[in-house]
């Protein structure tokens, strides 16, 4: 549905986005990550047709955003950064205007506006002037504008920015629900959001795409991922270390905590699959009591830091 091919944008001598390629199919929610100034918003602005491309190609459905912008834009809903809207209009008037511009009229328009108001819980403020609304409401007004025409493609630039925790939760549910049928790109700084809503992650750093894969693949890049931690009751640390060395392909055994009654251990191995059950089998054979045996899943923020702080010569992971 969304296809970016070697998209490049330069402002004068600075290259803001450098040959970024990716694809989003219907039913996919792509999380767009990257440090501030990495080129996320610039890329989104090119996808939505606001900024012209310096090189490359973007296809929305079958339409080239540069050659047939009107038809391409028809397929898209866009929530820009900071959620702009016309402050001197009422919520209802603003949505009616957007619906009219989207080519809706008559009962179809009424229906679309009603549905957007309901979905975004704007019923209470529908006649209020946008300028007098709180930030959370203004954000939802702009989001309502994006989903008004039920577009197959949604581009959301920081959709949960400025919302309270309840609204954030609701927004995520909404995105996940819509993600079942639509092609969605979401940019965010909040990594927990990626796990909550995204089926795929793209990380952009200094204008380059440095990661493109599923959240699970991203987690797997964490050095923590696949390690097994366990609390062993009884034997002392020296004994434990000696015993655990027998595990296959063990690379490191860390004693995290040593208490009179139990010892907390972290085991790393180059063979990550089945490590937990191997540890369990070994402990059982020693007849040692243990608890809290679990495999670490790694942390997204760690991976994010690692990927985006590496030298720009980092290869692109497909």
């Amino acid at each position: 549905m969304i296809k970016a091919i070697e998209v490049t944008k330069s402002f004068g001598a600075t290259v803001a986005v450098d040959k970024v390629s990716f694809e989003v199919k219907p039913g996919e929610v792509l999380g767009f990550l990257g440090p501030n100034g990495a080129g996320k918003s610039t890329t989104m602005r090119m996808i939505t047709g606001f900024l012209p491309l310096s090189a490359g190609k973007i296809l929305i459905g079958d339409y080239d955003i540069e050659e047939d912008p009107i038809n391409a834009k028809r397929l898209m809903g866009y929530l820009p950064e900071n959620a702009p809207s016309y402050p001197d209009m009422s919520v209802e008037a603003f949505l009616h205007f957007c619906a009219a511009i989207r080519g809706l009229s008559g009962p179809q328009k009424e229906q679309a506006v009603e549905k957007a108001i309901e979905t975004c819980h704007l019923g209470k403020v529908r006649r209020q002037i946008i300028d007098t609304l709180s930030k959370g409401y203004r954000h939802r007004v702009c989001f309502a504008q994006a989903i008004l025409h039920d577009p197959p493609v949604l581009i959301l630039d920081e959709p949960t920015d400025g919302l309270d925790p309840n609204q954030k939760h609701e927004m995520r549910l909404l995105i996940r629900e819509m993600g079942k049928s639509k092609a969605i790109i979401v940019s965010t700084h909040i990594l927990e959001e990626v796990e909550a809503i995204c089926t795929r992650v793209a990380i952009i750093d200094q204008g380059r795409l440095v990661f493109n894969g599923s959240p699970a693949e991203m987690l797997a890049q964490s050095p923590q991922a696949g390690r097994v931690s366990v609390n062993i009751l009884g034997p002392n640390a020296v004994e434990i270390r000696a015993t655990l060395q027998k595990l296959p392909a063990v690379t490191d055994i860390q004693i995290l905590k040593e208490l009179p009654l139990w010892t907390s251990v972290l085991i790393s191995s180059s063979k990550k699959d089945g490590l937990a059950s191997a540890v369990k089998a070994l402990l059982d054979s020693q007849k040692w009591d243990f608890n809290e045996l679990h495999t670490e899943t790694g942390r997204l923020d760690e991976v994010f830091r690692r990927i985006t702080s590496l030298d720009s010569a980092q290869e692109v992971k497909k």
């Binding site: 939505t48 606001f50 009107i70 038809n71 898209m76 820009p80 950064e81 702009p84 016309y86 957007c98």
Partner: peptide
């Protein structure tokens, strides 16, 4: 200033 230019020019209008 309001950023609505981005909204207007990403709608299907020339």
């Amino acid at each position: 200033r309001m950023g609505t230019l981005e909204l207007l020019f990403t709608m299907p209008v020339t």
